[in-house]
Amino acid sequence: MGVLSRRARGGRRGGTADLALRPAAAGVPALPAGPRRPARGGGDPGRGARADGGGAGPGRAAGGRQRGAAVVVAGGGGGDAAARLRGREALPVGRVGRCFPGAAAGALVLRTQAGDREDYIRHPPRGERLSAEALVELDVLRGEYAGAYELQLVVSDGLSPMAMMDDGHLLPYLAAVRAGLGAAGWRVAPRLLVLRAGRVRAGYQVGAALFGDADDRKGRRVIVHAIGERPGTSHHNFSVYVTAAAPLVWATPGAVDHPLTRVLSGISDTACTPERAAAQTVKVLSQLAPR
Rank of each mutant, 00 (worst) to 15 (best):
residue 2 G to I: 06
residue 7 R to I: 14
residue 13 R to I: 12
residue 14 G to Q: 13
residue 15 G to F: 04
residue 16 T to L: 13
residue 19 L to K: 06
residue 20 A to L: 10
residue 26 A to G: 14
residue 26 A to E: 15
residue 26 A to K: 07
residue 27 G to M: 11
residue 33 A to N: 06
residue 36 R to C: 05
residue 37 R to L: 14
residue 37 R to C: 01
residue 38 P to V: 10
residue 38 P to I: 09
residue 42 G to T: 11
residue 45 P to V: 14
residue 47 R to G: 05
residue 47 R to S: 13
residue 48 G to L: 11
residue 53 G to A: 10
residue 54 G to T: 04
residue 56 A to K: 12
residue 57 G to M: 00
residue 57 G to F: 00
residue 58 P to W: 06
residue 61 A to R: 12
residue 66 Q to S: 11
residue 69 A to K: 01
residue 70 A to G: 15
residue 70 A to I: 02
residue 71 V to T: 09
residue 73 V to S: 12
residue 73 V to Y: 03
residue 75 G to Y: 06
residue 76 G to E: 15
residue 80 D to P: 06
residue 81 A to P: 13
residue 82 A to D: 12
residue 83 A to S: 13
residue 85 L to Y: 04
residue 87 G to D: 15
residue 88 R to S: 14
residue 94 G to K: 10
residue 94 G to N: 09
residue 98 R to T: 11
residue 100 F to V: 14
residue 101 P to F: 03
residue 103 A to T: 03
residue 103 A to N: 03
residue 107 A to V: 08
residue 108 L to M: 14
residue 110 L to S: 08
residue 110 L to G: 02
residue 112 T to Y: 00
residue 112 T to M: 00
residue 117 R to E: 11
residue 118 E to K: 07
residue 119 D to I: 02
residue 123 H to P: 01
residue 123 H to Q: 12
residue 129 R to Y: 00
residue 129 R to F: 02
residue 131 S to P: 01
residue 131 S to C: 03
residue 132 A to C: 05
residue 134 A to V: 01
residue 139 D to A: 14
residue 141 L to P: 03
residue 143 G to K: 11
residue 149 Y to D: 14
residue 149 Y to V: 02
residue 150 E to D: 15
residue 161 P to K: 04
residue 162 M to G: 10
residue 164 M to F: 05
residue 167 D to G: 13
residue 167 D to P: 05
residue 167 D to C: 03
residue 170 L to E: 12
residue 172 P to Q: 08
residue 174 L to A: 09
residue 178 R to S: 01
residue 180 G to E: 09
residue 183 A to K: 11
residue 186 W to M: 06
residue 187 R to G: 03
residue 188 V to E: 07
residue 189 A to I: 04
residue 190 P to R: 09
residue 191 R to V: 07
residue 191 R to W: 02
residue 196 R to C: 11
residue 196 R to T: 07
residue 201 R to T: 00
residue 201 R to N: 00
residue 201 R to D: 00
residue 204 Y to M: 00
residue 204 Y to R: 00
residue 205 Q to W: 01
residue 207 G to R: 00
residue 208 A to S: 13
residue 210 L to Y: 03
residue 210 L to A: 04
residue 210 L to S: 00
residue 212 G to R: 05
residue 212 G to L: 07
residue 216 D to M: 05
residue 216 D to N: 14
residue 222 V to T: 03
residue 223 I to V: 15
residue 223 I to M: 05
residue 226 A to N: 09
residue 228 G to P: 08
residue 239 S to I: 07
residue 240 V to I: 14
residue 244 A to E: 10
residue 247 P to T: 06
residue 247 P to V: 09
residue 247 P to K: 03
residue 248 L to N: 01
residue 250 W to G: 00
residue 251 A to I: 01
residue 252 T to D: 05
residue 254 G to I: 08
residue 254 G to Y: 09
residue 255 A to F: 05
residue 259 P to R: 10
residue 260 L to G: 02
residue 260 L to S: 08
residue 264 L to H: 08
residue 270 T to C: 06
residue 275 E to S: 09
residue 278 A to Y: 11
residue 279 A to I: 03
residue 279 A to G: 13
residue 279 A to D: 13
residue 280 Q to S: 10
residue 282 V to S: 07
residue 289 A to M: 11
residue 291 R to M: 06
residue 291 R to I: 02
